[in-house]
């Protein structure tokens, strides 16, 4: 919902949406990303996330798997249906939820196994946004 580091100068910096029902994870990822040149948005569930996708210019979706209501995979698929064709990172401790997806559904979903450390998530985010979109330190 909240753009943590959006400013006029960084209007063209990549927009990342963090979706997690744990407020701590949401805030801490946002806090970490705000040290780099990202526009950071966050949402507590899939419905809220879809609203943000609608309203803002999002380049990457980072979502938890297990959340009240729709889970992370369902959110990613709903976003695709709504034509938000952004790459997604799925954060989960349940490796099997990713393994159960067929190749087509896995397309453009990167798995980030929980627990992860700051370096891992920063690396994944930068990789998914591609070199062209990678923020400058």
């Amino acid at each position: 919902m909240l753009a943590m580091s959006a400013s006029d100068e960084s209007a063209r910096s990549p927009g990342v949406l963090i979706v997690d029902d744990d407020a701590g994870i949401r805030e801490n990822i946002a806090d970490l990303l705000s040290t780099e040149d990202y526009r950071v948005y966050s949402a507590a569930d899939a419905d809220e996330a879809l609203h943000v996708l609608e309203a803002e210019d999002i380049d990457l979706l980072v979502t938890d798997f297990q959340m009240p209501g729709r889970n992370g995979v369902e959110l990613i698929e709903a976003a695709r249906k709504a034509n938000h064709l952004v790459p997604a990172i799925l954060m989960t401790a349940y490796l099997y939820v990713y393994e159960q997806l067929d190749a087509d559904r896995r397309k453009d979903i990167t798995l980030l196994r929980k627990p992860f450390d700051a370096d891992e998530i920063l690396r994944e985010i930068a990789a998914r946004l591609g070199d062209g979109n990678a923020p400058k330190r």
């Binding site: 994870i25 801490n28 970490l32 627990p115 450390d117 700051a118 998530i121």
Partner: peptide, 22 residues
């Protein structure tokens, strides 16, 4: 146990990194 501990662990790691950058 693993699931319950994962979230606080991730938070510790993220916070540590945030401080480290500041």
């Amino acid at each position: 146990v693993a699931h319950e501990i994962n979230t606080p662990l991730t938070n510790i790691s993220l916070l540590t990194a945030s401080i480290s950058r500041r």
